Computed example of a mutant assay.
Amino acid sequence: MNEIETIFQKSPESKTWLCQQNSTLPNRAMNFGDGLFETMVWEKGQIRFFERHIQRLRGGMQILGLDSEAIDEAGLLDLLTINYPTDRKRVRWNIYRAGSGKYTPERNDVFQTLLITEFNGAPIIKQKADASEKVRLFPTLWSSFKSLNALPYVLANQERKERGLDEIILLDNRGFVSEAGASNIFWTKDGMIYTPSLSCSCIDGISRKVILDHLERNSIPYLEGEFKLGELEKASQVFVSNCLGVSYLERFRCGEFSTVPLQFLQLIFH
């Protein structure tokens, strides 16, 4: 079975989603990476943390100068409800600038695709992790959003595979911990939860927001900041999170960590 089970597309001229496998080529997604995406979980007749996905998507569209009026939340939910009323699916929503042109855009309206696949949750434990030796993340206007310019993550995960790792940690251009290969990163030490701040060029992850909001509401001590790799080696527990859930790191270099699930995370991602 192919990873992609179903593709729906919506052009600027269309008011409905069409089940269609072939995209018009060339397009600005292919030529310039001129767009954004959101990876979401559809379950129990709703998209998990949908309002937060929409908020981040609109923020990214504003940075790229894309027309956010094309975003129809209700229409998207109707489509999923009709086609997958009781299923649990992974939904990747791509939005890229319509038209052609060269570096200078000719239009601000958007072409949209939905890639629907089976949901496979994050593994509970990732046994072996290390820092990337090849890839650093640099600050940009769009570094906190999920853009179609994803080469740093492609190269980092290629390195992870070549080195036989289960997870790879990315640093920013100054050497501070930024994030994992496809997730935000957290760790605990002496009753405090730590995570890199957005100043470290990490993605402003949806699960990251949800976790930090939970910590804030429940007066659980946490700190966002700029941390060197040595802080990870001193941690008692390290976990990474994205829309698919939470994974606990068992080892990072010479350090070994607890992999006992944290109860509050189980409540958030049940």
Results as ranks from 00 to 15, higher is better:
residue 70 A to E: 12
residue 42 W to F: 09
residue 232 L to T: 10
residue 124 I to A: 15
residue 133 E to M: 08
residue 129 A to S: 15
residue 143 S to R: 07
residue 212 L to G: 07
residue 61 M to K: 10
residue 162 E to K: 14
residue 36 L to S: 14
residue 248 Y to L: 11
residue 30 M to T: 08
residue 92 R to Y: 07
residue 123 P to R: 05
residue 258 S to T: 14
residue 245 G to W: 01
residue 175 G to W: 09
residue 256 E to L: 03
residue 238 V to F: 09
residue 200 C to H: 05
residue 62 Q to G: 10
residue 113 T to Y: 03
residue 140 T to P: 05
residue 41 V to K: 12
residue 238 V to G: 13
residue 27 N to M: 06
residue 65 G to V: 12
residue 61 M to A: 06
residue 80 L to K: 03
residue 83 N to V: 00
residue 26 P to H: 03
residue 80 L to Q: 01
residue 71 I to R: 01
residue 137 L to T: 13
residue 245 G to C: 03
residue 225 G to V: 02
residue 181 G to H: 03
residue 193 I to V: 13
residue 88 R to Y: 00
residue 227 F to T: 02
residue 114 L to F: 05
residue 205 G to F: 00
residue 200 C to E: 11
residue 144 S to M: 08
residue 125 I to Y: 07
residue 146 K to Y: 13
residue 92 R to W: 11
residue 48 R to P: 00
residue 158 Q to N: 14
residue 188 T to W: 00
residue 86 T to A: 06
residue 40 M to L: 11
residue 19 C to W: 00
residue 56 R to E: 14
residue 156 A to V: 12
residue 195 T to C: 05
residue 16 T to G: 05
residue 264 F to R: 08
residue 221 P to R: 09
residue 253 R to K: 15
residue 46 Q to A: 12
residue 119 F to Y: 15
residue 135 V to S: 08
residue 110 V to C: 15
residue 241 S to F: 00
residue 146 K to M: 12
residue 144 S to R: 13
residue 26 P to C: 07
residue 6 T to F: 08
residue 37 F to K: 01
residue 96 Y to F: 15
residue 267 L to E: 15
residue 218 N to W: 08
residue 268 I to S: 10
residue 32 F to T: 02
residue 144 S to A: 09
residue 167 E to N: 11
